[in-house]
Design a protein around this nucleic acid. Structure first.
Lengths: 327, 327
DNA sequence: ATCATCGATGAAAGCGGTTTCATACTACCG
DNA sequence: CGGTAGTATGAAACCGCTTTCATCGATGAT
């Protein structure tokens, strides 16, 4: 692997000049510039990014930590981040925290050690502990606010999304609407639950405790909780699920027990992943623009990386209801 | 951010000793070791990974290039790679080539510049061009062999998988079996097509040209091709799709045109992604153990990183048929 | 008591870039 | 034609770590 010194020697100049040419600084005589370029080409020279990073303190690499890549929502988001980062010449190191806070912390440390220039974290656990780990690396947080930590956030208005979903069910004439919620202490899940409650109260419906069951954002969890409700004779006519995976699990449970959707039970999900369009009946759900959220997060991060003193901001993305066949 | 010099000064030793202690080399007096450890703790010291990489030539980071993260098969695979890498203390930088060969090449360059210790590439295009770009970084290739490039491979036996699928359809009494193939020049797609042909010939059926339509591995592509077949009156009773996404698109098309599955048309997919279980009727498909393939690829890569002279190997994974309701 | 041996340790030289700073050269001006 | 401002360039320091190699003191053998 050719080094900058090889190129310098081959072109008969100093390494400083090679560096100047290759980084496009003015003040190099055209003849010299050409010699350097030529030598670099001949030697098939590519600058060593690590050495560059050490010298400049910038690595042109960012970290992205996701709670669960198997949930189709996150690949879309990741792709948004990655496309935007890529356009800026940045690489993205991604870590899958697998919904385990320890693993998340581990990744943050790993990334910090790799000197990433910034991180985007879609946190699972309580990210307050992360603040210290992150140090002074610019960070953008997704879906979760940490009091006292001055970083930028981008988040969907989950509360609003949940209200849209429930209002839609109410408008369809439902009165007994249950909620298959997400895990506790996860901000998006909490907000969706809050929106569900609000919307019921607004409609003059008392949100009963037995209408709420919480659990992980997964197909299995949705399936089991719904099955349990059906088998225990819970009297409901509609369900708002905290995400599409849970909704689809529930849908499956209904089909296994012969509850027709939407006749016997109306069902609304959240996210609008590809899955929502694939299942039968197609799932009514709340759209969160995953890709754009990713792009947005990148833009914020890019700003903070360019100017560490830039004011933090708080981007709230509006969700929309997508009505399909399950309601 | 504290440096190794700060720790050395604080502990009253040289940087060499700090380095020795922190990397666990023997030959440091316990008293000294404790002083260093203590100082490191007080200063909240973490070694700068970039500097370490520059000094050692090892970054404990690997690259993973995937053609399309939206295809649920790849997140599973990625997770296998990542889990295994993580267990070895490696970080993985991943790149989404988006099925564009240029983008793939760009990523390979990006990774090489970042001095990754190794790469796992699930290539889209013709990866021969990559050989040069990669340089002497250890590589494991997924699903694709490049003549003359001495690297390790791991690949599912796509040909066998396709034969299992078609043999199953034949056993169910089908004679007019079409194939919704994957893109041209993509090894897995070619092999599956090959297996399809072989199985038909073995069954004494002549594989007609009009029974084969190729296109991208996507839902939309499956939908459109199937719709076109139905509308153009193609007489078939079964379809083997080159992957689950295509199969599910086709399934959708059938439902939109009132072709009952499996009565009017039997359908088999490939991959056994989560989707196959979610759609109705559930999809019969060929299982490829994505996660294990990822783990396997990592193990191969780890071997090559540890010993650049290690002999290359060629791991072939056996697929299995998973029979569900679509046949 | 003397000397060779050995273990513990630090100084310093890289790793491959960037960047400052001094210098050599040009060109322009009076 | 000398002086000066300005431009192009290279030497060398530096980024934070690892690692070699020399050194120093202690130990054990003679």
């Amino acid at each position: 692997m050719a080094t900058i010194r090889d190129v310098a020697a081959s072109a008969g100049v100093g390494t400083a000049t090679v560096s100047r040419v290759l980084n496009g600084y003015a003040g190099v005589r055209p003849a010299t510039r050409d010699r350097v370029l030529q030598a670099a080409r001949v030697l098939n020279y590519r600058a060593n990014g690590v050495a560059k990073a050490l010298a400049t303190g910038k690595f042109r690499t960012a970290g992205l930590i996701l709670p669960d890549v198997s949930n189709p929502f996150f690949p879309s988001l990741a792709r948004g981040v990655e496309d935007a980062a890529h356009a800026d010449g940045y690489a993205v190191i991604f870590g899958n925290a697998d919904n385990v806070p320890e693993r998340e912390a581990e990744y943050v440390g790993l990334l910090r050690d790799r000197l990433v220039d910034g991180m985007i974290i879609a946190s699972t656990g309580a990210p307050a502990a992360l603040a210290e780990l992150v140090g002074d690396v610019p960070v953008v947080l997704l879906d979760r606010r940490v009091p006292g930590w001055r970083v930028s956030y981008v988040s969907t208005d989950h509360r609003l999304g949940a209200r849209l979903a429930v209002q839609h069910l109410v408008a369809r004439g439902h009165q007994r609407i249950a909620h298959l919620g997400g895990p506790e202490h996860v901000a998006s899940a909490e907000d969706r639950l809050g929106g569900y409650r609000e919307a019921l109260l607004e409609a003059g419906i008392d949100p009963r405790a037995e209408w709420i069951a919480r659990g992980p954002f997964s197909y299995e969890s949705g399936y089991e909780r719904m099955l349990h409700w059906i088998d225990s004779g819970l009297e409901i006519s509609a369900v708002f699920a905290a995400d599409d995976l849970i909704a689809i699990g529930a849908l499956q449970a209904c089909q296994d027990r012969g509850w027709a959707i939407p006749q016997r039970l109306a069902l609304v999900g959240f996210d609008d992943t590809l899955l929502a369009r694939l299942v039968r009946p197609r799932l009514t759900t709340v759209l969160q623009p995953a890709y754009q959220i990713g792009v947005q997060a990148w833009e914020l991060l890019a700003r903070h990386m360019a100017d560490p003193g830039a004011p933090t901001s708080d981007v709230v993305v509006e969700p929309h209801l997508v009505i399909r066949e399950s309601t």
